[in-house]
Design a protein around this nucleic acid. Structure first.
Lengths: 215, 215
DNA sequence: TTTGCGTTTAACAAAATTGTTAAACAAAAT
DNA sequence: ATTTTGTTTAACAATTTTGTTAAACGCAAA
C-alpha cells in the first residue's frame, strides 16, 4: 500500500468533480461516478460513507480552492486595477476547468440552504468588504463612476461567471466548438475589464506572474 | 366539464413552475409536484404522460414567454438606449418571478443537449443579430466604446441574469430578506445601465409603458 | 334516471438508486 | 508461512421514484 493509500479516493473525487463541475451532470448517480472512475460502486460508500457526504467533500474542496485564489488576490498589495485584472484572469481561467461549479453550488444550495449558510459562515469578510476601501479611493480620485462595493463586485462576478455558467447555451446558440469557446473566453477578459473600467486592460498581470499565483 | 376543462392541467403546470423556476428545486419529484398542487400523483401522468414530458412542456412555455418579451423589445422601433433600458427592466422583472429559470435551463440542457438544440433551432436570429446594426451605429457615432454585438449582448445577459441565478447565494452572503433582495434588484437596473453605457439610465421606459408591454 | 365522458383516486407493478455485508484479494508486517 | 491490514468486489436488501391500471366519482346530456 503506502503509495496507493489515498490514490483511489483521490481518483474518485477527481472523476466526480469532472462529472459535476466540468460536464454539468448535476444528477450523476453513484453508479455513473463509479463507471467514470472505473471502479465498483461500493467503493464510493467505503471511502465516503454516502453519496451525500462525497458531494459535500468535493464541493467543499473545490469552493475552498477557488475562494483561496480570490482572497489571495484581493488581499495582496498592489493597485486596484491590477488586482481586478488579476481577479478576472483567475476566475475565467478557473472556469475553463470547472465551468459548471457555480451552477452546481446554486442548485445544490437551493435544496439545502443550511449547507450554504455553513459555507458562508466560514469567512467573516465578504469579497466586497475586501475591496471597499480601495474602490472608494478610486471613486474619490475621479477615476471611476460612483458605485457601491456590493454592486461593483456583483458586476464583476456576473461578467466573469455568467459565460461559464451558460457554457452549453452559449456554445449552442453561437455554434462554437470547444476551441472557439476557449478563445472566446480569453477575449472576454479584456471585454470585462473594458466594461467595468471603460479603458483598455493593461498587459499586466504577466503570464508568469499568473502562473506563480495559481501554484 | 367546460369551465374546469384545462383547470387542473394549468394548476399543475403553475405549481411545477413555482417549484422549479421560483424555488430552484431542480430535482423535485412528481410526488412533490403533486403535493404542491394538492392532487394525486397519477394525475400528472394522466395529463402529461410522463414527468419528462411535463418538464418539457413547462420549460418550453416559459422559455417561449421570455423570448417573446425579448424579441418584441429588440424588434420594436425606437432608439438603441431606450430599447436596452427596456430590455434590462424586462429581464430583471421576469427574474423576480422566475429567478431560477436560467439555472434550470442550464442544468437541464447539460444533461440533454438535444433539447437545447431543438429550442435554439426554432429562432433563426440570435438576439445579438437583432441589435447589431443599431449597436454599430452607436459605436460609429462615438457614443459607445467599440464592442462586438455578441460580447455586448452577453455582457447585458450576464449583468441581468447572474443576480437572478445566484439569488440564494447573494441573499445568504449579504444577509438579505426577500424584500431587501427585491429592492436590490430594482437598484441594479440603474447600475446595469450605467455599467454598460457609462451614463445615467433615462426615466423612460415609464411604468405604464412597461405594464403594457408585459401584458 | 341513467348513460356517457372526462376526471380523479387508490392500489399495484416496475425500474432505478442507494446503502449494506460478507467474502476475496493483495501487499506488508510478524 | 501466516497473520494482519487495508482495499476491492459481487450479491443482496431497502428505499425511492416512476409508470400503469382498474375502479370510483361527478356532472352534463339524453
Amino acid at each position: 500500500m503506502g503509495a496507493e493509500e489515498a490514490q483511489t479516493e483521490k481518483l474518485i473525487k477527481e472523476k466526480a468533480k469532472n462529472l459535476f463541475f466540468k460536464n454539468g451532470f448535476l444528477n450523476a448517480t453513484t453508479q455513473e461516478i463509479a463507471d467514470e472512475a472505473g471502479i465498483n460502486r461500493a467503493l464510493i460508500h467505503y471511502y465516503f460513507r454516502s453519496r451525500e457526504q462525497m458531494l459535500d467533500t468535493i464541493l467543499d474542496e473545490t469552493i475552498l480552492e477557488k475562494k483561496e485564489k480570490i482572497r489571495s488576490i484581493l488581499l495582496s498589495t498592489g493597485n486596484f486595477r491590477d488586482k481586478m485584472a488579476m481577479y478576472i484572469h483567475t476566475i475565467v481561467d478557473h472556469g475553463l476547468t470547472y465551468p459548471y461549479l457555480e451552477n452546481f453550488i446554486i442548485s445544490e444550495t437551493a435544496r439545502h440552504p443550511e449547507k450554504l449558510k455553513l459555507i458562508c459562515s466560514r469567512d467573516k469578510l465578504k469579497s466586497s468588504d475586501l475591496i471597499r476601501e480601495q474602490l472608494q479611493e478610486e471613486i474619490a480620485a475621479g477615476r471611476l463612476a460612483p458605485i457601491t462595493a456590493e454592486h461593483f463586485m456583483i458586476n464583476l462576478s456576473a461578467l466573469c461567471n455568467y459565460p461559464l455558467l451558460a457554457k452549453g447555451v452559449l456554445q449552442t446558440i453561437h455554434g462554437m466548438t470547444d476551441a472557439a469557446y476557449r478563445k472566446f473566453l480569453v477575449e472576454r477578459k479584456r471585454v470585462i475589464y473594458r466594461t467595468v473600467f471603460n479603458e483598455e486592460m493593461p498587459e499586466f498581470p504577466a503570464k508568469e506572474e499568473l502562473q506563480k499565483r495559481r501554484a
